[in-house]
Design a protein around this nucleic acid. Structure first.
Lengths: 189, 189
DNA sequence: GTCTATAAGAAGATAGAC
DNA sequence: GTCTATCTTCTTATAGAC
């Protein structure tokens, strides 16, 4: 795959930041173009089918980014409990670092928002959650957990983190995220 | 307080259903008026400050509705574990009943979506979460849990349920919600 | 490939008749 | 109090110059 031009990168990165922060519908193409400094023609040159195609690429990118982070963190630690705690703690630190105001490489509540609008966006979000689930499952199974138990733990961890992110963004405090960290040992044992 | 006219009720109920299902930004006033069968003049007569004022009333109503349900369910059961499980199970059943497609008296991901747009909407959502938290806390403290432990458990339960709702709506399956039910006993002990 | 100008429609909001 | 017609602005999307 050839390297994409700079304007392509600018558009995708700006769009990702805005979509994942404000939501899909709250983000207009004009805002994306204004903040990325790109003209409208470029967007429709790279994404002929418009906003939805751009959002699909943002979801795909966001998913790859998180998968990479999650994979690394889960591999770095011998103890799966500590590994998972580490990932969630990193998420909280990132949220604080950007003051809940930048690209939060985490929240796919875009998922819920777009799921009743577009089937293709919904499907992309389902794939994202499934990918994360498999990473948690692999790590837990490698530590001796049975497949079905690993699956339900993985789903629970993702639920807790996504829900805590909602609370965190709403309350403008990372406390709910750290609260999840505290309960991981009690769940995975 | 005098009883509100029928058109007022129609508007608020239709708006609630659409806001909580599709999201704030994805729901246009025209859609609300078309589906409620009301003219635009009525909306601005009852809500002179427009969409945001209407959304505030919907959040207030939704909060009252959930608080009532939660209070009842928590009071009905001697065992707090079973009481909380019952409430979450009811939520899953309601989601299935409306096929993730009607008024889901639960998800305040509107919270995250609107928090970066309007301070007054964000504040209303914070109040909502705080109210729920206090109901869980009271029930847990009545059963002998210390205040701080009850608080963190309450925040965790809300996080789990909200996150599970995101997964459920995205995957169009209530399984993530029932998954939360399974882990309540392990957490509250 | 890059950029501008503009179209076509929907958004939220308002004025004013009845 | 109820309803309609209209305004402005912003949305996504396109056409076409360079």
């Amino acid at each position: 795959m050839a390297a994409k031009p700079e304007s392509y990168e600018n558009i995708v990165q700006t769009a990702s930041r805005l979509f994942f922060h404000q939501g899909y519908h709250a983000t207009g193409l004009n805002q994306i173009l204004a903040e990325s400094g790109s003209p409208k023609g470029s967007l429709y040159y790279y994404f002929p089918r418009g906003k939805e195609e751009l959002a699909l690429e943002c979801i795909r990118r966001g998913n790859e980014f998180i998968k990479q982070k999650l994979k690394e963190t889960l591999a770095e630690n011998d103890d799966p409990v500590r590994a998972i705690q580490e990932f969630i703690r990193n998420t909280a630190e990132e949220a604080d670092r950007v003051s809940f105001n930048g690209f939060m490489p985490i929240g796919f509540w875009t998922a819920a928002e777009t799921s009743c609008i577009s089937e293709s966006l919904r499907h992309a979000c389902v794939n994202t959650f499934t990918d994360w689930q498999h990473l948690y499952m692999e790590r837990l199974q490698a530590d001796g957990w049975m497949e079905e138990k690993a699956r339900s733990l993985a789903v629970l961890i993702i639920s807790m983190l996504e829900g805590a992110l909602i609370l965190a963004v709403t309350q403008q405090s990372s406390e709910p995220i750290y609260n999840v960290v505290d309960y991981i040992p009690q769940l995975i044992k």
